Simulated scan of single mutants.
Amino acid sequence: MSKRVVIISLLLCLIGLWGIWDVIASLLAGHLRFNACVLFLHPGCALLLGRPWARKHASWAFGFFYATTGIATFLALAGIGSGTADYFAIVVSLISLAVAMLLHWQLYTRPFDEYLAESPPAS
């Protein structure tokens, strides 16, 4: 297993754990809020275990993240004409989209192809 596979898989797990923490913290504060990053924990753990289907599950999670972040960016941009735009939210959304695209692209590099092509260990 290459360093790239380990780092990307652990980052996906950490993103998922952060999403879970955010949902729990919002529930403890008396709010009900879903964080799309929760969806990254399952593919991250499966990638660490070398499951071939994990890349497809991660792609679905990235697709959902792209859609929700894109909608949030669009809603923040909608306030530009009225002067109520939240430029900080726009910049954070675009940076998070760029980081997500980089992580998603890494899933289709040669180290991941070689790692997922190997047969998973017998359990």
Results as ranks from 00 to 15, higher is better:
Ala76Arg: 02
Ala36Glu: 11
Ile24Met: 13
Tyr115Phe: 15
Ala76Ser: 15
Trp105His: 12
Ile71Asn: 02
Ser59Asn: 14
Leu77Tyr: 09
Pro120Ser: 11
His57Phe: 11
Phe34Asp: 07
Val92Leu: 14
Leu17Lys: 09
Val92Phe: 14
Gly30Glu: 07
Arg110Glu: 13
Ile80Trp: 14
Phe64His: 04
Val92Lys: 12
Glu114Thr: 04
Trp21Val: 08
Ala36Gly: 04
Phe65Ala: 06
Ala117Cys: 06
Glu114Ala: 04
Leu12Trp: 00
Gly19Cys: 11
His42Gly: 09
Leu97Thr: 14
Ser96Cys: 09
Phe34Pro: 01
Ile7Met: 13
Ala78Met: 13
His57Ile: 05
Ser93Val: 03
Ser2Ile: 03
Leu94His: 05
Leu17Gly: 05
His31Glu: 11
Ser93Glu: 04
Leu39His: 12
Ser119Trp: 05
Ile20Lys: 10
Gly63Arg: 00
Ile80Asp: 01
Pro120Trp: 05
Ala85Glu: 10
Ala72His: 08
Ser123Ala: 07
Leu49Cys: 08
Pro120Glu: 03
Leu48Met: 12
Tyr115Val: 00
Tyr66His: 14
Val6Ser: 08
Arg33Tyr: 06
Ala67Trp: 11
Leu103Asn: 09
Ala36Phe: 14
Gly30Val: 03
Gly50His: 02
Leu49Ser: 04
Ala89Ser: 15
Gly63Pro: 01
Ala72Met: 13
Tyr87Gln: 10
Ile95Arg: 05
Phe112Arg: 06
Val5Arg: 04
Leu32Gln: 06
Ser26Asp: 08
Gly63Cys: 02
Leu102Asp: 12
Tyr108Val: 05
Phe88Gly: 12
Leu14Cys: 09
Ala98Asn: 03
Ile20Tyr: 08
Gln106Ser: 15
Leu48Ser: 06
Gly83Ile: 11
Val6Met: 13
